[in-house]
Design a protein around this nucleic acid. Structure first.
Lengths: 124, 124
DNA sequence: CTGAATCCCTGCCGATACTG
DNA sequence: CAGTATCGGCAGGGATTCAG
């Protein structure tokens, strides 16, 4: 951040802070798009704990269907959060690992957690 | 989670960090619910700059329809982010102001911005 | 001026079934 | 083991209309 116009934390001094309609190239939109959708943060949480295979993720999140898990993994790979590593052979073995960029979601989720944990307590 | 096995920031040592399915009471879900939906962050951004009336918000975000603006304001009031202040008389005048809790979204949005701004570049 | 009610359309999510 | 294909239900979002 390069300024503090009004005294609140403010947003970066970047033209994208001035958009008047939702803009996919806005960094906030990019971040929220990466986190969007049911189950997404739980998948990330599992992978923050270490790399996991497809079945391991299913075991950790039993209510999550194959299709949605597959969707989420693709979404997160697309967002640069995860990498897929295939091991050839039989049975096929794949594992998913956070990229460095994905690991940097840790503090972001922490910020969301901290804010959400104080909801209702208006303190100030 | 009760540890920091891998050296990443980790999540709080709270039972809600162990849920195996989406849980509305999870702080992360609470925060994401507050930010959910198209236009939401732009409305917040406007109000981070100062209190605004309904029409002022419409002017700042011309593509945003009345209905969705109304929906968003209700959502954010419900989330404890905003307060509505009515002034009696004619014409009716209302303004919206961030609560202290809402103002604390500043750093959260900043964290999202920072992450989103580095997407693609794999080493911050 | 400040909204709420309605309608429709689209996209997400879940269940099931099928493939390499 | 690791997914993809397909379908149906439901909620989100936009335009329009109406009301306090």
């Amino acid at each position: 951040m390069t300024h503090q116009t009004v005294g609140h934390p403010g947003l970066p001094d970047d033209p994208r802070a001035e958009v008047t309609e939702p803009d996919p190239s806005c960094p906030v939109e990019i971040a929220l798009a990466a986190l969007r959708g049911r189950w997404t943060t739980l998948v990330i949480r599992e992978l923050l704990r270490g790399e996991r295979g497809f079945t391991e993720l299913r075991r950790a999140l039993p209510e999550l269907s194959d299709k949605v898990l597959s969707d989420r993994l693709a979404q997160l790979i697309d967002a640069g959060v995860l990498e897929r590593h295939r091991r050839s052979g039989w049975p096929a073995r794949t594992h998913y690992r956070l990229t460095p960029h994905g690991r940097r979601l840790g503090p972001v989720l922490q910020a969301l957690w901290d804010w959400g944990a104080t909801a209702g307590s208006d303190r100030g």
